[in-house]
C-alpha cells in the first residue's frame, strides 16, 4: 500500500515535470511572438499586413496563456471555458460596437 502511494507519487511528479516542460516551450513561443510583434512594428512593415498579424499573434498568445499557463486544457474546466467564451463573445460584440457604431 505504502509502496503503491509512493509509485503514484512518483508518477505524478513525472507527469507534472513533463507538463512543466511543455509550459517552458509555451513560454519560449510567447516570447518569440512578442519579439516578432515588436519587430514588425519597428521595421515598419505594411500596415495592412501588420495589424491583422498583430491581432492574430495576440490571440494565439492569449490562447497559450489560458490553455497551458492557466491549465484550461485540463479536465474539469468545461464550465470555466463556457463562461470565459461567453464573456469573450460579449467582449467581442462590445469592442466591435464601440469601434464601428459610434457615428464617426
Amino acid at each position: 500500500m505504502a509502496e503503491n502511494t509512493n509509485l503514484q507519487e512518483q508518477y505524478r511528479k513525472k507527469k507534472n515535470k513533463e507538463e512543466m516542460k511543455q509550459q517552458v516551450i509555451t513560454f519560449v513561443l510567447m516570447i518569440l511572438f512578442t519579439v516578432i510583434a515588436f519587430g514588425m512594428v519597428i521595421y515598419e512593415l505594411d500596415k495592412l499586413f501588420v495589424i491583422p498579424t498583430l491581432l492574430i499573434l495576440a490571440v494565439v498568445q492569449v490562447g497559450f496563456q489560458l490553455y497551458y499557463f492557466m491549465h484550461m486544457s485540463h479536465k474539469g474546466h468545461e464550465m470555466p471555458a463556457l463562461m470565459l467564451y461567453a464573456g469573450a463573445f460579449v467582449a467581442f460584440l462590445t469592442v466591435l460596437t464601440l469601434s464601428v457604431l459610434i457615428w464617426w
Binding site: V90, L93, T94, L98, L101, I102, W103
Partner: peptide
C-alpha cells in the same frame, strides 16, 4: 469625447 459611448455601454 463621444457621448454615444455611454449609450452603448449603458444598454449593453
Amino acid at each position: 469625447g463621444n457621448s454615444v459611448i455611454w449609450e452603448h455601454l449603458f444598454w449593453i
